Simulated scan of single mutants.
Amino acid sequence: MLLFNKRIVQPTNVEVKESPLHGRGVYAKQRIFKGSLIERAPVVFLSAEAKEALRYTKLFNYYFLIKNQEMPAAFGFGYASFYNHSPEANAFYSFSNKRNTLNIYAYRTIEPGTEITINYNGHPLNREAVYFPQQNKE
């Protein structure tokens, strides 16, 4: 279990710019310490019907799958949808139903200029094909 410190990274400490991974990505502008909250992005939970409607839009590659039959997807605002996937991610995410947010945390210390990546499968080192993150009641 990771313990989180209370240091919060302000949104001005990260930026979106071109990425060699997948077009655009989120980068650290200064050192982000392990366990720090990088971003608390507002999120909209989507019904299955709304999720399917995304298939016909440019937003199709920018939503998150969730293990919830009524609301199986979420769209994150802020920089949330620009964090690229890596099987050896340096950050991880969780959802908060109470706050309707997607929370991005540093899995390890991230140096300035480094792209911040998450593992779409959940845990930063998870190599499974599909993962549906748990929503917490935070």
Rank of each mutant, 00 (worst) to 15 (best):
K51P: 02
R55G: 08
R55T: 10
I118Q: 04
I66S: 03
N97G: 03
S86T: 08
R127C: 07
L102M: 15
L54V: 01
L102E: 13
N97M: 12
T114F: 03
F77I: 00
E49N: 08
Y63Q: 02
V14P: 07
T101G: 04
M1W: 11
R127N: 13
F4E: 11
R24L: 15
H123N: 13
P87C: 05
A129L: 12
A48T: 00
G78D: 09
F95Q: 05
I104K: 01
Y105I: 02
E15G: 08
A73H: 02
P133Y: 08
G23S: 03
Y105C: 01
N68K: 05
P72V: 06
F92L: 11
S19P: 04
N136K: 10
Y27C: 08
N100I: 00
I8A: 13
A50Y: 03
P87Q: 06
F4I: 09
P72N: 10
V26Q: 10
M1V: 09
G122P: 05
T109C: 10
Y93P: 03
R55K: 14
N13E: 12
I104W: 07
P133G: 07
L2M: 13
I118P: 01
A91S: 15
Q30C: 15
A106G: 06
K51D: 02
F64R: 02
R7Y: 11
F60P: 00
G25H: 09
N13M: 08
G25L: 06
E39G: 07
T117R: 04
A28M: 03
N90C: 13
F77T: 04
K17G: 07
K67E: 10
R40I: 09
V130P: 02
N84P: 10
F132C: 00
N5P: 11
A53H: 02
F92P: 03
P124A: 02
P87S: 09
G35V: 12
H85V: 06
N68F: 07
N97Y: 08
K67C: 00
T57Q: 06
E111R: 12
F64N: 01
G78E: 08
R31E: 15
L46E: 00
E138D: 15
V43F: 10
P112K: 13
R127H: 12
T114L: 03
N90Q: 10
G76A: 14
R40T: 12
E70I: 05
T12M: 01
M1F: 12
S81P: 01
G35M: 12
K137G: 05
M1T: 08
K17E: 11
L3S: 10
Q134D: 15
Q134N: 08
T117D: 05
R7T: 14
I38D: 00
Q69S: 15
S36P: 04
I38W: 01
V16G: 03
F75G: 03
I8K: 12
F132Y: 14
Y63H: 08
E115N: 01
K29A: 09
N119E: 10
Y79E: 02
A74R: 00
Q10C: 03
M71W: 02
T57N: 04
L65G: 04
V26A: 09
F82I: 03
N97H: 08
F75T: 04
G76E: 00
P124N: 01
T114Y: 03
V130C: 07
H123Q: 09
H123S: 11
N90Y: 09
A129T: 11
N84H: 14
F77L: 15
L54T: 11
G25C: 05
N119L: 06
N61T: 12
R24Y: 14
L2W: 01
K34W: 07
